[in-house]
Simulated scan of single mutants.
Amino acid sequence: MKPLGDVDEGVRKHWDRQLPLTPPATVEKCLERQNHEDITPKKLLPQLKSKSRKPRLKYRPEPNTVFNIDDYMAGIRSGKDVKNAEFVRYALQHSKRVIMITGAGISVAAGIPDFRSSNGLFSQLKGKHGSSGKELFDFNAVYSSDEMNLKFNSMIASLHKLSKNCSPTEFHRMINDIALEGRLQRLYTQNIDGLDTRLSNLATSVPLSIPPPQTVQLHGSINHMECNKCSLVVELDPAVFKCDGENETGVKLVPNCAQCEEYDAVRMAAGIRTQGVGKLRPRVVLYNEIHPEGDEIGRITTSDLRKKPDCLVIAGTSLQIPGVKAICKQFGQKVKASRGIVLYLNQEYPNRAAIETIGCADLVVLGDCQNVPRLLSEDSF
């Protein structure tokens, strides 16, 4: 008999083919996880909601149909109103990639005035300061004299204090819920009050970061100030802008940047030529100035357009700012091209220019925007 090592090569290959492909049942298998209780389940609810199939849209109103939501919630309803209410529910409860573009109207219920209404900020400021309220948001006017700068500082300090004492509205919370479900593609807000970004799912970054945050503040925020030289961004401190002014002489209404002063002192101690000291200002974008983050916002909107949003909601704005009008037009065209839904929500009917900017809204919802989340909480008919 040949030793095992001398077995013919053909016989060895035959034995190899006969070997079992799996270990015998007597071999104890090593389990990586013996205790299944150690496995923590993932929170899949938002993902499951976002991936659920969208129901078929059964009704679409004629373009620019008007739906008075205040009358509807007061019980004044026709058969057409019921269909329009269902359409609003469908848009906000089943759309998968929602773009929100909001204005001051959504914060009025919190106690913060809008800008252009009869009781708005422009009207209030005009009565208080004896000049056009709009001038206090014009870059050329604000920094034209100490008097105008003092008025601007005082206005910003008042708004900052007011916003700190206000809470997000039900409309803000509705947007936050849509974001929680993973269906909000982006919130573009014109508001500088920062009520929206206080909510956990509507966070932003200042300055804008990459990847972009859930909320893009189109006009900045009264919660921050920035140096015009070194671009330092810090939380707004109203005290540094000398808002009382009457009993102060020789004060700097446009304060120096502390970081620039520190860098300048180091350079002087080292015998290096100084580079100057920047000025701090509220991080609010004014009329007649170049938007400091315009290019970045353009990149974000371009990226969002490629993701094919299926719903555009424009709320609480009269669409008077050219840059915002351009964004609304781009998203409106994209959404309509893919048979998505466009809603325009405002207290007053938009002027012809606004309607032409949007292209055509499926539904113009007139009335208090705070009635929209109340509508969603009602049982469907």
Score class of each variant (00 low, 15 high):
Val206Ser: 12
Val206Phe: 14
Pro207Tyr: 09
Leu208Trp: 11
Ile210Ser: 15
Ile210Leu: 12
Pro211Gln: 08
Pro211Phe: 03
Pro212Leu: 01
Pro213Thr: 04
Gln214Ala: 02
Thr215Phe: 06
Thr215Tyr: 07
Val216Ile: 14
Val216Lys: 02
Val216Ala: 07
His219Tyr: 10
Gly220Asn: 06
His224Gly: 06
Met225Glu: 13
Met225Tyr: 07
Glu226Leu: 07
Asn228Cys: 12
Asn228Phe: 09
Lys229Ile: 02
Ser231Asn: 14
Ser231Cys: 09
Val233Lys: 09
Val233Phe: 09
Val234Tyr: 00
Val234His: 04
Leu236Ala: 14
Pro238Thr: 10
Pro238Ser: 11
Pro238Lys: 12
Ala239Lys: 15
Cys243Gly: 06
Asp244Val: 12
Gly245Trp: 08
Asn247His: 14
Glu248Trp: 03
Thr249Val: 08
Val251Asp: 04
Val251Ile: 05
Leu253Gly: 02
Leu253Phe: 06
Val254Phe: 00
Asn256Ile: 05
Asn256Asp: 08
Cys257His: 00
Cys257Pro: 00
Ala258Gly: 03
Ala258Cys: 04
Gln259Tyr: 01
Tyr263Gln: 03
Tyr263Trp: 06
Asp264His: 03
Val266Thr: 08
Met268His: 05
Arg273Asn: 12
Thr274His: 12
Gln275Ile: 09
Gln275Glu: 15
Val277Ala: 10
Val277Asn: 03
Val277Ile: 15
Leu280Arg: 00
Arg281Pro: 00
Arg281Val: 01
Pro282Asp: 01
Pro282Ala: 03
Pro282Phe: 04
